[in-house]
Write a protein that binds this DNA or RNA. Sequence first.
DNA 1: GGACGGTGAAACTTCAGGTTGCCTC
DNA 2: GAAGTTTCACCGTCC
Length: 552
Amino acid sequence: MKKKDNEKIVLKNSYDDIVNVSLDTISIGKQALIFVSTKRSAEKTAEEIASKISFEQINNKGKLKVLSENILHALNNPTKQCERLSKIVLKGIAFHHSGLSNKQKFLIEEAFRKGDIKIIVATPTLAVGVDLPSFRTIIKDVKRFSGFGMNFIPVLEYLQMAGRSGRPSYDNYGESIVLVKNNREEIIERYIYGSPESITSKLAVEPALRSHILGLISTNIENSYSGIIKFFENTFYGYQYGNKERLKDIIDRILKFLLDEGFIIEENEEENKKDAKNSEKDSDEYKNETDDDFFITAKDIYEDEKIKVEKKYYSTRIGERISQLYLDPLTASIIIKGLKKLNEKIKKGEQNIISFINLLSYSLELKPFPNVKKKDYELIEEFYFKNQKYFIYNEEDEMFEYDYDFFLKGIKLTLIFLSWIDEKDENYLFETFDITPGELQSKKEIFDWLLYSSYEISRILNYNFYNKFSKLRMMLKYGVSEELLSLVSIKDIGRKRARLLYNKGIKNIHDIKNADINVLKKILGEKLAVKIKKASTEKKELEINLDLEKKF
DNA sequence: GGACGGTGAAACTTCAGGTTGCCTC
DNA sequence: GAAGTTTCACCGTCC
């Protein structure tokens, strides 16, 4: 490429420049990554580029057709998003963002690596760490919405994106192109000549510090107060914080929180317990002590006083488990309070499956929460008012005092999970709640972890309903209601086949065992029927005690 | 005259991402 | 703040 040509591309000021640069990149036999600021824009831009490429000009049609098919059928039922992506992939163009399923993301990255896909239009998903044969990075937006209007993206992020191109394993050099409408000089100054922002320690975020302090204590790496302080003083966080007193204040606050919640205990308490046990023995020993010995003991007491100032901490059983589960202690504390509420509801007979889901729907681990859009209001509020008594959290809760939107977001999540285990079609979920396959997948994974954590916490706290959480996990995993759990435990039976069988009166493993093979063949087809019959006889009993008889 | 379709301006809506965290058959 | 989508008024065409 001659320098002149490059400048011509960079200086053009119309939206079509994206298309122009992309086509130019393809024509010189190279590949490009285009970064935009929103998912919607990624899809639209990719389609725009693809529309200017004729399928006839493409020489690897065969490979792209296969790829396109794979992308279309990456999910059980292709969504509109799948259709859009599979269509443009035929032209060697793709979009890439968090809304795609993992499989689709993987397929696209692989195809780009092999050179079949020429252009990927991405949100910052691809900005960090990937090693792809991209010759050009084209940045369409240097500003991004951040709650308070549009802000410039950090220089660090610009550098990360630019750094995706000209990877040593593929090229000798790469090009980074920023498309600007105005403020050209300002952008050059900021990103080309500007220096990157300084790096800040991630430990400075309190959830992280909370987890790490509990972790240090529960693994007995540091138990003494001074040891904990010293540990953090020696981290990059401590170095950056500088102000030791302030660091101490924060650690004090967190220790107090962990103590108040019963996740750790102070040594004094521990010692007192030991003292109580040993008191009898000790008093016997005292009888034989000489005056001298007594004097030494007094000195010891003085030493003890010193140790008391140097407090020591130990984790409780629940604290240790929380740390092992990698739960933010604050989340754990919220879960514990929620469990208490749930227990009261159960006593009053005001619980159902909604209560169990709602209990966890506000966990910060689920961030970012799905947006509640205008059209959602009616559906969400109706659902809430209809089932109000089953909710663990209601609108008067102080948690929502200044944030009604947060309240609605949690209900929306509750409703999404409920619909999923109510066997609603995936496409129904995507369209009704405006979520993407990728988002649903990641929310399900996190929720599964939270359910397991709740199972563990409620078991330790002796709540007799703890098994319900593992049951709910299975329901969430397969997207089925309670009645299908026995059936889906057999390999090759998912939510759809289970429902087919159930509706024909075959309701569990035993029914399959006893069923006439011809009946099964009619429902599932010949091969599958044989396979499943065999699996049902080999399967002992449902291993996990799911309380299948007891309903929520 | 009314139905229909095309066009463009105005109004409205919405906005990135993910490291690992647990257990088990 | 701005891109993308939806809505709506307006106009021309056709039957």
